[in-house]
């Protein structure tokens, strides 16, 4: 067990290292002519050289790698990076702030978006999946599966637009303003407003995921329900509800957790789309705006950030499922 965990962590560390190197190479490509991007118009050679020096682009690549990992380049005399939080990932061309700080300042919005979406999609898919698995082939099963199929076939950006059209624009024409179409209110200011502003974005992400997870829960439940120990539990005269929730669901959860980890890890992709549609100022919005305005260090920083999130969450999920298996074997 311990060897597995150690090997799994080692593998993730190696992946992380390669990801760091790849993003570093991307910054080297991006920094081919950063002086031109950073300098004011008509800047003379002296200013250009100054910027090159400040960004430490005159140093050999291995030293640049160290700066990339440990501290950002010094601009306008301000030391950035190590003082704040390593790795510094460099310095935003447009916002004149270290990339790490910029990303971390946007994390609360994206994290709120992701967490709420996960709660909604997991709750709905567990309930509908179990309902479907109770009587496969029944009307309930068919209706739920058909709705899940529609959700699964809608791209996130389309779901988002439809939600904002029907639940914001259409309701507003009838004078009902339950759901705002954009904006973010921090949880600490007002939990109610926080949830009200995020409800449509949560649904936009959750709907496609419910479509996927409803099927996974259903399939997994059906498989578990046909197992011998469930028949034994029933034969013992256990109440159906306890058979479902105490016995079956617990074992049926494993594939759900594995896939859930993968989907959650990749949620930033959906967040970019949803934050664009609903005007949320999160990491995804930061990524797309930087990409469109040519702020390379920020784009590459968000790529690295998203990879690290992905690697860490898949690692956690793998270890947790392994521990669960281990516990159920020794049980």
């Amino acid at each position: 067990m311990l060897t597995y965990v150690v090997r799994r962590i080692g593998r993730s560390a190696l992946t992380l290292l390669i990801v760091l190197l790849v993003t570093f190479v991307l910054t080297r490509i991006a920094y081919r002519n950063p002086a031109a991007t950073l300098a004011p118009r008509n800047a003379d050679q002296q200013v250009m050289d100054g910027i090159t020096k400040a960004l430490r682009l005159d140093e050999p690549w291995h030293l640049q790698l160290v700066h990339y990992l440990l501290r950002g380049p010094d601009i306008q005399g301000a030391a950035v990076g190590l003082l704040h939080w390593p790795p510094a990932l460099g310095y935003s061309f447009r916002k004149q702030t270290p990339v790490t700080e910029l990303i971390l300042s946007k994390v609360p919005v994206t994290a709120s978006l992701a967490l709420g979406a996960v709660v909604i999609w997991m709750t709905f898919s567990l309930v509908t999946g179990v309902l479907s698995a109770r009587r496969p082939g029944s009307v309930t099963d068919k209706v739920i599966s058909a709705v899940a199929y529609v959700g699964l076939s809608l791209p996130t950006f389309l779901t988002g637009i439809l939600l904002s059209y029907f639940l914001f624009f259409k309701l507003a024409t009838y004078g009902i303003r339950w759901f705002p179409s954009s904006g973010y209110v921090p949880f600490r200011e007002s939990p109610f407003e926080w949830a009200r502003h995020l409800l449509l974005p949560w649904l936009a992400i959750a709907i496609a995921e419910i479509g996927i997870f409803q099927r996974v829960v259903r399939g997994s439940m059906l498989e578990v329900l046909s197992a011998d120990y469930i028949r034994t539990a029933r034969a013992k005269g256990l109440a159906e509800r306890r058979v479902y929730f105490d016995h079956a669901l617990r074992s049926a959860l494993n594939p759900v957790i594995t896939l859930g980890g993968l989907e959650l890890a990749a949620i930033l992709g959906g967040a970019i789309v949803v934050e664009t549609i609903f005007g949320l100022d999160g990491v995804g919005r930061l990524a797309i705006e930087s990409a469109l305005s040519g702020d390379y260090p920020v784009v590459i920083g968000t790529t690295l950030f998203a990879s690290v999130v992905f690697i860490l969450s898949t690692l956690t999920v793998d270890v947790v499922t392994r521990l669960r298996d281990h516990a159920s074997v020794t049980h």
């Binding site: 992946t15 990801v19 790849v22 993003t23 991307l26 991006a30 890890a265 990749a266 930033l268 992709g269 970019i272 789309v273 990524a287 797309i288 930087s290 990409a291 469109l292 040519g294 390379y296 784009v299 590459i300 968000t302 790529t303 998203a306 990879s307 992905f310 690697i311 898949t314």
Partner: peptide, 13 residues
């Protein structure tokens, strides 16, 4: 481990 949309953003930029 490179998320699709974000990495695509980098490459397109």
């Amino acid at each position: 481990s490179f998320p699709f949309v974000v990495t695509a953003l980098s490459l397109v930029a």
